[in-house]
């Protein structure tokens, strides 16, 4: 499934300064029963966001109107646990296009890149700065510039660069995914398969 191109994103951000946020929190297993990729944003952080009787928990950040935006800033080791791509879908479907953290779990990061959510890994110090700026002023805007590979706190001008491999960067800039790439080299793949021992 192709997605919208990603170039420069300027937005306020939603802070979630919790470490080890696992994909069971991002989307609990009982919401994985769909056979289509629809509506996962409604259940993003379901059990942190809603009480058992489906009333919103007022102390959770997504229920706090003070914070909004297309950027989610998470604590260290964001997205650990289950490989469910539904977690990345939920983040995207809710309206986030970028997640910033000082450390990402592998599979979640890969899933995000495959569906058009940009994972931006920053230093722990820069992550702390972002949290502090948002706490001081929830309207703080952050700019994520993919062509330049930089993330900037606009108010203070503080900036850090982030890494992404050239191939994935091109994909994100163009809204392409790996499936397009692989389908184009199918001939090479079937040739390769003939030589394998197993």
């Amino acid at each position: 499934m192709a997605y919208d191109k990603f170039e420069i994103l300027k937005s306020t951000a939603v802070p979630l300064p919790i470490e080890n946020v696992d994909t069971d929190q991002i989307i609990p297993a009982r919401f994985l029963k769909a056979t289509e990729r629809k509506g996962f944003g409604d259940n993003l952080f379901r059990d942190w966001r809603y009480n058992g009787d489906d009333t919103p928990k007022s102390d959770f950040v997504l229920n706090n109107p003070t914070y909004s935006g297309k950027i989610l800033v998470g604590g260290k080791n964001f997205g650990s646990g289950s490989s469910r791509e539904h977690a990345a879908w939920a983040v995207y479907d809710y309206g986030f296009r970028c997640v910033i953290s000082s450390f990402f779990a592998d599979i979640f990061k890969g899933n995000c890149l495959n569906i058009g959510v940009l994972p931006v890994q920053v230093s722990p110090e820069f992550s702390e700065k972002i949290f502090a700026e948002i706490a001081a002023d929830p309207n703080t805007e952050i700019e994520v510039n993919l062509p330049n590979q930089t993330v900037t706190i606009l108010k203070t001008g503080e900036q850090e660069s982030f890494e992404i491999n050239g191939y994935k960067k091109q994909n994100m800039l163009n809204g392409f995914d790996d499936i397009d790439y692989l389908n184009n080299i199918k001939g090479d793949i079937t040739e390769f398969a003939k030589e394998l021992p197993l």
């Binding site: 791509e85 539904h86 990345a88 599979i107 890969g110 899933n111 495959n114 790996d178 499936i179």
Partner: peptide, 8 residues
């Protein structure tokens, strides 16, 4: 792997 990769 994630579902996009399952498709791949």
């Amino acid at each position: 792997i994630g579902t996009s990769e399952v498709e791949m």
